[in-house]
Design a protein around this nucleic acid. Structure first.
Length: 576
RNA sequence: GCCCCAGUAGCUCAAACGGAUAGAGCGAGUGCCUUCUAAGCACAAGGUUAGAGGUUCAAUUCCUCUCUGGGGUACCA
């Protein structure tokens, strides 16, 4: 049976869940009473918010699905179930509608009373226990540390960061990780590029590598190297190791700015994981031996391949015999993904490892999954969020960027120009499955009409009202008689506030953070409607009680707005 | 060739495990500031959900095919 005493609720009311449970109880009761034949009652009864007021607040189509099984008309089943529906303080009425819906209408006084629970829960409002503390790692961005973060990583950064926040709010223990690709030939070329510029500063002609990095930041790094190290690397006996050391030093320098730039966007990592460490600790060799023992490794033309029956014709190159002369550079980047997943799931024991990858990497998913299988691990512990690419437009023209050509717009430039909030919000307004056009002119030009301001403005409006109320001598912290909240716009706002835990549940279960921006906009809209229809601080003497109640509502609404905005990671301004 | 994603209002996109009358923003239209911020609100306009089949009581949603766009396709990560 449901418990509805407000103080008994941990923090959050989940109406969808609750109505599903009620319906399930009714189904079981109808069975026990013989009104319905015996059948297996579904564990999860589907419940949705009604789209039209005529259909109540929530509805379930469950009876229509049972019609065939029970050989009864769905409407008849719905009527029987409705008759067995247990009474609940939250539900005012239960109606049956053709062809077999059961519609629930909330009890208005109960709805109004929940405002107190929201206010009491405060910052914990909406948090749900879905994760039960399971440990989840979200690995994202992980852009090459051979150059500054570009705007090409913006979507990845926001999706990963907000996903982590969503999961935290949903009761998971979450770690944010950046995988640093500090092994392989790219790093080598990067070091050689710095070395060439560095040499030039001393008038020494060092050939610039063919696959080098021509960006101006490389020259800046070379100057810094000259200031820090003088001629040390130029005079080194072993040019190869000098280049390598300079490359590693350059990566460290880059990573510092990468961390700063991401912080400017509001993104912070718990762990920066070095790809090189997979080799240095011997894990790579260990895992390779394991795969070999399992018969998943084949040698062909002097190269080493990972093969798995899942991969059809594909095989993954682990180690090449040629092309790269330096043996320590030989494993491919895909090869290091295999010990890396072992490190995540076995050594560090994450229950789930989430990868946030651009669509250009989607082809690697089956390979990593096959590797997990080959290592005897549960593939479902690896979750891949594949988001579609972002097309950057300026002046209606697509901007093509690449670090190797040295032509790109940095994330930092974008953040400095537009600010973190619009970027974060806009990157979350679409599902990860659709490509995104990001018009730089529009982002700047129309920034004050960006949807994020619409939501933030609602928050600001509430702050303004509360300020005015305090100036007028109202005790803003006081309680109010919530039963006075009866206006449709008041109840509409509260109902929207109550939907937050449901939205969070959906976002966490489907790993789809865009639901939050959609919801935030709807919540702001509900507040604006309330603001329009209901004078909050009244000067009428006989409306003092109503004013008190509405001040409580306004505060509770602000809490929910702030909760959503915090999860999205944008500011909650008190003035705009 | 094969694999992945998408195609919904003029534009950019939503639509929870398949549910009832497919929703927002922008743009264009008409109104609303002498009391809490007009970065707001109201009204009205805009749709054969790319096309064709199929499954289902019910399809924007699932399946097949076609068309269009984007991405990938083993040593750049």
């Amino acid at each position: 049976m449901e418990r509805e005493t407000l103080q008994g609720m941990s923090a959050t009311i989940n109406l969808r869940q609750r109505i599903g449970d009620l319906t399930r109880t009714a189904l079981l009761a109808a069975q026990d009473g013989g009104a319905l034949p015996s059948f297996e009652v579904p564990a999860d009864v589907p419940v949705e918010q009604s789209r039209h007021a005529a259909h109540g607040d929530y509805s379930t189509p469950v009876c229509m699905g049972l019609a065939r099984l029970l050989r009864r008309a769905p409407l008849q089943i719905a009527q029987i179930v409705a008759q067995h529906m247990p009474a609940a303080p939250s539900i005012a009425r239960v109606d049956v509608a053709p062809p077999g819906f059961i519609n629930f209408t909330l009890e208005p006084t109960w709805v109004a009373s929940t405002v107190g629970a929201i206010l009491a829960a405060g910052d914990s409002w909406g948090n749900i226990a879905l994760g039960k503390g399971a440990r989840v790692q979200v690995e994202f961005v992980s852009a090459n540390p051979t150059g500054p973060i570009t705007i090409g990583s913006a979507r990845n950064a926001v999706i990963g960061d907000v996903l982590a926040s969503v999961l935290t709010a949903a009761g998971y223990t979450v770690e944010r990780e950046y995988y640093v690709n500090d092994a392989g030939s790219k790093v080598r070329n990067f070091g050689a590029s710095i070395f060439a510029r560095y040499g030039a500063l001393f008038g020494v002609d060092v050939p610039f590598p063919e696959q080098g990095y021509p960006g101006a930041y490389v020259t800046d790094l070379a100057s810094k190297a000259r200031d820090n190290f003088g001629r040390r690397y130029l005079e080194a006996q072993d040019r190869d190791s000098a280049v390598r050391e300079l490359g590693q030093w350059g990566i460290q320098m880059i990573l510092e700015t990468v961390a700063d730039d991401l912080a400017a966007l509001g993104v912070h990592f718990d762990t920066w994981f070095s790809e090189r460490s997979l080799y240095d600790t011997g894990l790579f060799d260990e895992i390779l031996a394991k795969l070999r023992a399992g018969g998943f490794v084949v040698e062909h033309d002097g190269a080493t391949w990972f093969r798995h029956s899942d991969l059809e014709k594909d095989a993954v190159l682990i180690r090449s015999a040629d092309v790269i002369p330096n043996p320590e550079d030989r494993p491919t980047y895909l090869a290091s993904d295999i010990p890396y997943l072992w490190n995540k799931l076995v050594e560090r024991k994450f229950d789930r490892a989430i990868y946030v990858w651009g669509a250009d990497h989607h082809g690697d998913v089956p390979r990593v999954q096959a590797a997990a299988k080959a290592l005897g691990l549960d593939v479902n512990r690896l979750v891949f969020i594949i988001y579609q690419m972002v097309t950057m437009l300026r002046g209606g023209e697509e901007i093509r960027m690449s670090k190797s050509s040295g032509e790109f717009i940095t994330l930092r430039e974008l953040v400095d120009e537009v600010g973190p909030d619009p970027i974060r919000f806009m990157m979350l307004t679409r599902t990860v499955d659709v490509t995104l056009d990001f018009d730089l002119d529009l982002a700047v030009e129309q920034s004050d009409r960006n949807p994020v301001y619409y939501v933030q403005y609602a928050h600001t409006r509430i702050s303004g009202v509360l300020r005015r109320a305090m100036e007028a001598g109202w005790d803003v912290s006081s309680k109010g008689d919530l039963s006075l909240l009866t206006h449709p716009s008041e109840l509409g706002l509260i109902r929207k506030m109550l939907a937050y835990p449901e939205v969070l549940t959906v976002a966490a279960q489907s790993l789809a953070p865009h639901h939050l921006t959609t919801y935030a906009t709807e919540l702001a809209s509900a507040f604006h409607a309330f603001y329009r229809d209901c004078r909050i601080v009244s000067s009428e003497p006989d409306e003092a009680e109503l004013t008190r109640a509405r001040l409580v509502l306004a505060q509770a609404a602000q809490i929910v707005l702030a909760r959503v905005l915090r999860v999205i990671g944008v500011a909650t301004p008190d003035r705009m």
